[in-house]
Amino acid sequence: MTKLVLDIKHLEKKFGELKATDDLSLDLKAGEIHAVIGPNGAGKSTLIKQICGELTPDSGSVEFLGEDVTNLDVAQRANLGLGRTFQISSLIMEYSALRNVMLAVQSVQGSSYRFFQAIARDYKQRDAAMECLTQVGLQDRANICAAQLSHGERRQLEIAVVLALKPKAFLLDEPMAGMGPEGSKRLTEFLDTLRHQSPILMVEHDMDAVFSLADRISVLVYGKIIMTGSVEQVRNDPLVREAYLGEQ
């Protein structure tokens, strides 16, 4: 049996009376891309937040690489190797693209408590960051302030930042959101190569991307996973068609 990278067991989260996550279990295996799909309001964001540590579940557990991380905070989980991107780009807007990636490199270096060395002279950090920018094709935009990048470029920068973390699992929150057809296609190809580096758990709306990338798909409706299966199984499941694919 393949080792589980992420193992989420019986997660529950209530907001008042609303069950946003309802006895949810989910896992991610080495080398795979596991996509979570579901209609709006299904609780996808709540799920992501519980996996990355922004929200604490009411009950249930999140295990990462065999370690129970349910009570760890965002930074601790990131340090263990959980690299997440945001649905709405969340960058350091006054920093250049390069500086944004350098911050992630700095985290891996563990050098955030260096007080005297000028960051401009940390060529190691700079070079490592530049490499990640090059991987996503942003090398020519390295010195542009994040606030001045286009929407699509910011999405690419999100990916570059997470690459710099050298994570053991990627957690991607709607990476295709607002990318445009050309951008989506390129990103899809890129993510396809990424799975060899580390497995990917992604929440995504873009069905073309999901169907072409995912090894497994889980369908989330009202906080519950109603089924998990291969692309074919999900495509042909009548329940899924009814609940999600909007079969008339």
């Binding site: 965002v74 930074a75 601790q76 911050l103 985290s107 891996v108 955030s112 973390l165």
Partner: peptide, 8 residues
Amino acid sequence: QRLASVGI
């Protein structure tokens, strides 16, 4: 949020 999510 960004700082925490890169692990700092």
